[in-house]
Design a protein around this nucleic acid. Sequence first.
DNA 1: TCCTTTTATCGCATCTATACGACAAAAGAT
DNA 2: ATCTTTTGTCGTATAGATGCGATAAAAGGA
Lengths: 118, 118
Amino acid sequence: MSKVRMEKLKPMDTRLSRWGKALAHPARIAIPRTLSQRDACVCAEIVDHLPLAQGTVSQHLKDLKNAGIITWTVEEPSSCYSLDKKTRSQLAGEMGRLFEEITSGCNSTTCSTKVKSK
Amino acid sequence: MSKVRMEKLKPMDTRLSRWGKALAHPARIAIPRTLSQRDACVCAEIVDHLPLAQGTVSQHLKDLKNAGIITWTVEEPSSCYSLDKKTRSQLAGEMGRLFEEITSGCNSTTCSTKVKSK
DNA sequence: TCCTTTTATCGCATCTATACGACAAAAGAT
DNA sequence: ATCTTTTGTCGTATAGATGCGATAAAAGGA
């Protein structure tokens, strides 16, 4: 999408869509889940749990880093990944609010507005 | 992603990633929000509120339909869109569980597992 | 210094997503 | 029967996402 068009959309919607995009791939769902369920913080272990090449997993990890979902510490030669606490709650909060909005509104089952003429 | 690879991932992760993908575009955040906040159920009004061509909006509406997020009734020549109640709660429920999982696990700040040798 | 280990990045190929304008479809109005 | 209105779909073009193997980088060990 072009920058011009993006600017005409609400910043909040763009921000939320970034959360969506970050979670728009099975591997990027599986990685945070793995980090929460197991102690597999080392990159190599994450790779072992996914049917993807190391380079590909590293790319997904980068996406999750950019989205602020995970943090990492470098302990050469390995990297330790973990879930970002601060952003976790922010994610849950913002998405929760979105769901509240969506859940609370528009209870009509038929069309309430019509365009009869111009 | 190829079918072979998809099959090696958990079905739950694939299902959740579809929710993410459906919400991975600002327009597909804005449309459900509009449907919840206003009574703009007629397609033409949705188009008026977005900086996108009618055909493009129709495509996004199709995506949201396929994801099960919105429902619609046809009242020729117009279409009335609304949020899908059943799927709304499902979405909130599944995503909520994911966030719970993510939020509850992995409190360590340093690496807990290391691969020293093979 | 030269290997080993581990991870990030690059180059490339392919597939998907997104956008637009133009057109098709459907039903009421004239 | 024809026109109008509204929406869905198509063809096409471009940008982004995704994948892999190969390579670079960084630090410790031999």
